[in-house]
Amino acid sequence: MSLSPQDQNLRNWLLEQSERHGHAVVTVPEDAEGAGYAFSVGAWRRFGVAEAVVLGLPPEMAEVLIRMYVTRAGAGERFVPGKLYFDFFDGVPVTFERVFKGFYTEFLGSAFLLHPKGDFAAVQIVIPTTDGHWPWQESAPAGFGDWQLLLTESGRPESWNPGVSGP
């Protein structure tokens, strides 16, 4: 794999962070295309657990959430898509969805520096509004579904049925 000096430096940093902390967190700021987001790189390599991506949270909160996920998953805890988890943020549930591979390049691009073939698993950590509305619900604020885009092929939950077997 022939990398530019900038990509080689990033790859070295990702590897160093992965060895030291079990993963690195890459943050991407909000832009004209959409909300800011953050994702892990190295969890798959280090622990064999899915990389995680979270959209629309402030970078500091996204980093804390991803670090908690990787720590717990790396210790053996498994997270079921569609199940609510109330112990990441006080009183605010989160759930998980599998990321469609078609989104990997756009939302997990730096991970390809460690996995050039894209042969890693990824999950999205999804968070409701403070009022408890999920991005796919009609009751969600206007634009929330675009702000926290669901990274499935359909753009809707695919690992569960909303309101039936998941939130």
Rank of each mutant, 00 (worst) to 15 (best):
P58H: 14
Q137E: 15
F79L: 03
A75T: 07
K117C: 07
G132Y: 12
T95L: 11
G118C: 06
L14H: 00
L57Y: 08
E30C: 00
G74Q: 11
V126I: 13
H21S: 03
P59M: 15
D90K: 04
A38Q: 07
P58T: 07
R72F: 10
A75E: 12
W44F: 03
W134A: 01
Q17L: 14
A73W: 12
E33Y: 14
L113D: 14
V28A: 00
A32S: 12
L15N: 10
D90C: 00
V70H: 09
T129I: 06
D119H: 09
T130N: 14
R67N: 04
V80A: 09
G34I: 02
A111N: 15
V26H: 04
D31A: 07
F100Y: 06
R45M: 11
E16I: 03
L108D: 05
L14Q: 01
A52Y: 15
D131W: 10
V70C: 07
I125T: 13
D119S: 07
V49P: 14
T105W: 15
G48T: 11
V99P: 06
T130W: 14
G132Q: 11
E51T: 02
P81F: 06
D87A: 01
W134Y: 04
L114F: 12
D87N: 12
R98Y: 05
Y37C: 04
A121P: 13
K83F: 14
V70A: 05
G42S: 05
P116I: 06
T27Y: 01
A121R: 15
V26C: 01
K101D: 01
K83H: 15
P116N: 03
V94R: 10
A121V: 13
G132P: 13
E16G: 06
F107H: 12
G36Y: 06
L55Q: 12
R45G: 10
S110L: 10
A73M: 09
Q137V: 03
T105F: 14
G118W: 15
F103R: 04
E19K: 06
G76W: 11
L108Q: 09
T95Y: 02
M68Y: 15
Q124S: 05
E63S: 11
E16N: 12
A24H: 04
A75N: 15
A75M: 13
V28M: 01
T27V: 08
V25M: 02
F39L: 01
V123G: 02
I66D: 02
G118H: 08
E30G: 00
Y69I: 07
V26W: 04
V41I: 09
A111I: 15
W44R: 01
E30K: 10
T95R: 05
G42F: 03
D87I: 03
I125E: 08
G36H: 06
Q124W: 06
E63Q: 12
P116H: 09
E63A: 07
L15E: 15
V80E: 14
Y37A: 02
M61G: 03
L14K: 01
S18E: 05
Y104A: 00
V53K: 10
V53G: 03
L57R: 09
V64Q: 10
V41Q: 02
L57M: 13
Y85A: 04
T129K: 09
F112W: 12
L65S: 07
Q124R: 11
G76Y: 12
T130S: 13
V64S: 04
F120V: 05
P59A: 15
A24R: 03
G22W: 13
S18C: 09
V64A: 06
A38L: 04
K117M: 12
V49T: 15
L14D: 00
